[in-house]
Write a protein that binds this DNA or RNA. Sequence first.
DNA 1: CTGAAAGGTTGAGTTACTGAAGCAATCGTG
DNA 2: CACGATTGCTTCAGTAACTCAACCTTTCAG
Lengths: 148, 148
Amino acid sequence: METQQPPTDPVTLEVTDLMANLVGIFHREYEEAAAARSLTGAQAKVLALLRRGPMPMRHIAQTLSCEPSNITGIVDRLEARGFVTREADPQDRRVKLVAATGTGTAASVELRESLHFAREPLAALDPEERIQLRDLLRRMLAGAVPPA
Amino acid sequence: METQQPPTDPVTLEVTDLMANLVGIFHREYEEAAAARSLTGAQAKVLALLRRGPMPMRHIAQTLSCEPSNITGIVDRLEARGFVTREADPQDRRVKLVAATGTGTAASVELRESLHFAREPLAALDPEERIQLRDLLRRMLAGAVPPA
DNA sequence: CTGAAAGGTTGAGTTACTGAAGCAATCGTG
DNA sequence: CACGATTGCTTCAGTAACTCAACCTTTCAG
């Protein structure tokens, strides 16, 4: 949309494609791992966010870049199942602070640790390479939004 | 689900987390790029698959690991907008071969090339590092399913 | 030829999502 | 201090994606 850098070098293009595959695989595994705990992907994402502590709906919506009304529904369903609670912020009673319950946090942590991804494609790399990869990813993400 | 490797070393865990962030960013950009062409993410994925040539619905469903009935709907909407066609396979008339039209292919190629991702997080790496990253990703994906 | 299996579609039901409208609490300014 | 604008969240359509079960149609096996 903004500055149009016409050529896009071949390496970048290939990395983008590889990344797309990786994203596909990762995504599928994430959904499966969530489903195994009868969570949807969206619910799991919200729960993961809440591992950092209670936060206003607004903040959740911004972080996941979606409409607040969307979060209302997701939190509704999480709340109905006892994974999160909604409490009015005493500081500003317009704000609802969403917090993960013990069960919610546990499910999220468990999910995170169950990600097979860690063992499948990643297993193809030896420890040294994994560190290399980590460093590259760190640098790439240093500038980006600090999300999920 | 299968063999439980208890400890999961710290580097792997961190890589998984970084990857999760990356996946989030990439995913968001993909959706946006698709939306900019008034496609949904799912539609864009199917269209991307069809760049390789016509294929039966069954095959699409398997590749995207979802129910065939799901694909019916997505292809319906793509067809309604002239991005794909459905034709009976002369070899086996149960099979419907879905093929991207010129418009469909064009949209898909354009979308692929518009992925900003190439310039945002990736721009933080210098050419040498990008090659390093490419090689690592290649190795990781060598064993995996050859998807989208 | 007949019954089982495979490819797709249909229909019901859930979730995720958007956008507009609405309500309540808060803030800014005269 | 009061009043209008703004902010945070919910509610209400409306659409897309998805699952599952039931259902045709074509193919295949015996």
